[in-house]
C-alpha cells in the first residue's frame, strides 16, 4: 500500500461520507444528482461481489463495507427520506441511466480479463465508475451554478482519481508485472472527465466568484 493509494482511498471515502453527513445534517440534497448516486451504488455492488468470498485484508473489507453502506444510504435518503426527497431536483436530473449502463455492460462482455461472471461484473464496475459522474456534471451544467455540497463532492472524487493515477504510476515502477490496462484506461478517461470541471472550479475559486459553468 503506497501513500498515493492510501490518500486516494481516504479522499474517496471523504467524498461519500461528507456527502452522506451533509445530506443527513442539512436534510437537503440540492444540486446532487440521484442518477450519479445510483450508478455509484451499482459500481460498488458489482465490484464487491466477492466481499465475503475471499478476504484480502481488514482494511479492504472495512472500506468495501463503508463504500457500500454510504452509497446505498445516500440513495435511500434521496429517494425515501420524507424531507430530503423534496429537495431533489427531479426535473433537471434527467440523464437516462440506460445510456450509461448498457454500453458499459456490452463493453464489459467484450473486454474483460476472463469471461467469468465475476470478472465481467468487475470490468463493468470499472467502466461504469468512469462515466458515473456524467449525470452529476450535466446537472451542474443545467443548474448553472453549484453550491458547495456538489462542488466539494466532485472535487474530492476528482482528487481521488488523480491520486489513483499516481498510485498506478508508482506501482508500475515498483512492482514487476503490475499491469492493469482495464483500470488504467478507464481511470484516465474518468479523470479527464473531471479535468474541465476542475478548470472551472479552480478559476472560479481563484476569482472568488460563484462557479459559473459554461452552458
Amino acid at each position: 500500500m503506497n501513500l498515493f493509494r492510501l490518500a486516494g482511498d481516504m479522499t474517496h471515502l471523504l467524498s461519500v461520507v461528507v456527502l452522506l453527513l451533509k445530506i443527513h445534517t442539512i436534510k437537503s440534497c440540492a444540486g446532487i444528482s440521484l442518477k450519479t448516486q445510483e450508478l455509484y451504488a451499482i459500481v460498488f455492488a458489482a465490484r464487491y461481489l466477492d466481499l465475503f468470498v475471499h478476504f484480502m485484508s481488514l482494511y479492504n473489507t472495512i472500506m468495501k463495507l463503508v463504500f457500500l453502506a454510504s452509497s446505498f444510504s445516500i440513495v435511500w435518503y434521496m429517494r425515501q427520506h420524507k424531507i430530503v426527497r423534496r429537495t431533489y431536483d427531479k426535473e433537471h436530473d434527467t440523464f437516462r441511466h440506460q445510456f450509461i449502463l448498457l454500453p458499459c455492460l456490452v463493453l464489459a462482455l467484450l473486454i474483460n480479463e476472463k469471461f467469468t461472471f465475476r470478472e465481467v461484473m468487475w470490468a463493468f464496475s470499472i467502466y461504469l465508475e468512469a462515466v458515473a459522474i456524467l449525470p452529476q456534471l450535466v446537472l451542474l451544467q443545467r443548474t448553472r451554478n453549484i453550491d458547495n455540497l456538489a462542488g466539494h463532492y466532485v472535487f474530492f472524487l476528482g482528487a481521488y482519481r488523480a491520486l489513483y493515477i499516481l498510485n498506478w504510476i508508482y506501482r508500475y515502477f515498483t512492482e514487476p508485472h503490475f499491469v492493469h490496462w482495464i483500470s488504467w484506461i478507464a481511470g484516465i478517461v474518468q479523470t479527464l472527465l473531471y479535468a474541465d470541471f476542475f478548470y472551472y472550479y479552480i478559476t472560479s475559486w481563484k476569482n472568488n466568484v460563484k462557479l459559473e459553468l459554461p452552458a
Binding site: R5, D9, H12, E113, Y164
Partner: peptide, 10 residues
C-alpha cells in the same frame, strides 16, 4: 480461486 489478476485495490 483468486481472480485472474490480484485485485487488491478498491
Amino acid at each position: 480461486d483468486a481472480p485472474s489478476t490480484k485485485k487488491d485495490e478498491l
